[in-house]
């Protein structure tokens, strides 16, 4: 479905076009023609705020990886912790975290903590199957980022990887960030993806 647009103007959503379509429903009959139910078709477009995480999603379209760090010296458990997934507030003290650029750290230290090759997907999947999920560790980062591996190599625990970014034709979703084996050459990157910029 297309033919709609969503913008934010002066802090308010500005919507135009069609956000849903109406289709006729159908009866569900058994083999003898007895009515068992009805279908309820609908197509709906939601518009969703990325809020305080928007800088992360914009950065990956520009070839940079952002994380956040708790800089509250009074935070016993969280002080100094680096969070990736980008976390707006520290989970311990709930103070606003400091945004930091971890692109170089990721380029140098990213490695596979766990992985899964998944032959199936749910409806609305946009990734090529099988999907190679990778959970990526970085030196000094408190968390383990979920992403996916591209390229022909199969993932392994401990494998060194590098982030790549869908800087051409971005979707502004988490699928704009992926990883490849660390030794991958730029010429071998999938279409629309680049190394960091």
């Amino acid at each position: 479905m297309s033919g709609y647009s969503v913008k934010v103007v002066e802090g308010k959503y500005n919507l135009s076009g069609e956000f849903h379509t109406i289709e006729p429903n159908q009866p569900i009959l058994d083999e003898k023609g007895k009515l068992c139910g009805i279908t309820n078709p609908r197509r709906i477009v939601h518009h969703h705020s990325l809020g305080g995480e928007a800088p992360f999603f914009q950065a990956i379209t520009r070839g940079r990886l952002l994380a956040t760090r708790c800089d509250n010296k009074n935070c016993k458990d969280g002080f100094g912790s680096i969070f990736l997934p980008y976390r707006i507030h520290c989970p311990d003290c709930l103070e606003r975290n400091t945004e930091i650029d971890v692109t170089d750290l990721a380029n140098k230290t990213a490695r596979v903590y766990s992985f899964m090759v998944c032959e199936r997907s749910g409806a609305f999947n946009t990734l090529e199957k099988p999907i190679r999920f990778v959970n990526v560790e970085f030196d000094g980062v408190a968390t383990i980022l979920m992403s996916y591996l591209l390229g022909k190599q199969e993932p392994k625990i401990g494998m060194k990887v590098r982030p790549i970014f869908r800087t051409k034709k971005p979707t502004y979703t988490i699928t704009d960030l992926a990883f490849v084996p660390a030794e991958t050459a730029e010429k071998d990157l999938p279409a629309d993806f680049t190394f960091s910029k």
Binding site: M116, N135, S147, Y148
Partner: peptide
């Protein structure tokens, strides 16, 4: 998480299976 996980295949089994793999 709809922003960080769901777009990755729309398949919950996959999010769980990485734990199984470990």
């Amino acid at each position: 998480d709809k922003d960080w996980e769901t777009p990755l295949g729309h398949i919950y089994t996959g999010y769980y299976a990485v734990m199984a793999q470990k």
